[in-house]
């Protein structure tokens, strides 16, 4: 589909603008979606398994069942996102047909194409994609992504790589702003990204689409950290509804339900007031329990999710 006047892109980026300052939460059921919305989530990501469970279970991770996605869409009034495998444009076509508000072409699922990402310009539904550095972010934007998020290392509750990727992207953008016009041609080659986009970043000092953070954010302090490093909103995956590394909190148990509610609420408040240590101290105290987590440094290279995508 052609978008000669650029209005399609403006609408897609426009929705991402509306999500700024908010928290997008992974949910696996209508019940979790309801808790997320009540706690103040700005959107939810409908999944069959959160990244921590995918990591623990192994096997091939695919798009969630339309049944789960529709159930979540029918439950909440905030935007609903869902994930498609990298390069799996047929899954994306199904998600667009279901009417989800944003599609995440995600490294958390098992990739479906070793070379190509989805041509996201071909869709009316906007896409978010993960990135570890500026080049990767700009390649995704060239393909039509209207929101970028750091990859971090999903399903770990370890914020270290969300920090690494955000710092990397922000640093590389800052470097572009002091380059001469001549140097920008080489920068485009080095970053393996289209020259026009490199030049746009050099002029503006920021990405032409919103830049969010994801991949290991588990506490209010984590949310504040990535926001202070330059994230404009936060994705929280396994950090809210997981107990152990592969078992979710039991929402039928009032104590465990209260724990999920307190975590969701605390991260929402921390993201909105990320520069206010007084609020951060209060919400950190109110939060009960947190995801056990898995240190990224202990994960074998081959088991990392962030290296998926090209």
């Amino acid at each position: 589909m052609s978008d000669t006047n650029g209005n399609g892109l403006r609408l897609k980026i426009g929705l991402a603008e509306m999500l700024k300052g908010g928290v997008i939460m992974d949910v696996m059921s209508a019940e979790q979606a309801e808790i997320a919305e009540k706690a103040g989530a700005v959107a939810v990501m409908a999944l069959e398994r959160v990244p921590a469970m995918i990591r623990a279970d192994g096997g091939v991770a695919r798009m969630a069942s339309p049944k789960v996605i529709k159930e979540v869409m029918n439950t909440v009034d905030i935007p609903v996102m869902a994930k498609a495998r990298i390069g799996h444009f047929a899954e994306a076509q199904i998600l667009q047909e279901l009417g989800v508000d944003y599609i995440d072409e995600s490294e958390v699922l098992t990739p479906a194409d070793e070379e190509n990402h989805i041509d996201k310009h071909a869709f009316t539904t906007p896409f978010v994609c993960g990135a570890r550095n500026l080049g990767e972010a700009l390649r995704r934007i060239a393909e039509g992504a209207c929101m970028i998020r750091t990859k971090g290392e999903a399903g770990t509750g370890d914020v270290i790589h969300a920090v690494k990727h955000m710092r990397q992207i922000v640093k590389e953008m800052r470097q572009l702003t002091i380059m001469t016009e001549q140097e920008l041609y080489l920068a485009a080659k080095t970053h393996q990204a289209p020259y026009e986009l490199v030049r746009m970043v050099a002029k503006a000092g920021k990405l032409p689409v919103p830049n969010f953070s994801a991949g290991g954010i588990a506490t209010p302090a984590d949310a504040s950290l990535v926001m202070q490093l330059g994230a404009e909103a936060v994705f929280v995956g396994s950090g809210i509804f997981m107990k152990g590394s592969s078992t979710p909190l039991d929402l039928k148990d009032p104590k465990e339900r209260a724990e999920a509610e307190s975590r969701a609420k605390a991260i929402v408040l921390a993201t909105a007031h990320y520069k206010d240590p007084k609020v951060l101290a209060e919400v950190s105290e109110q939060m009960t329990g947190s995801m056990k987590g898995l240190a990224v440094s202990g994960i074998a290279e081959a088991d990392l999710l962030q290296t998926r995508g090209w």
């Binding site: 700024k20 300052g21 908010g22 919305e37 009540k38 706690a39 103040g40 009034d77």
Partner: peptide, 8 residues
């Protein structure tokens, strides 16, 4: 933005 989030 999201009005329900503002209220919250």
């Amino acid at each position: 933005g999201e009005s329900s989030v503002f209220l919250n």
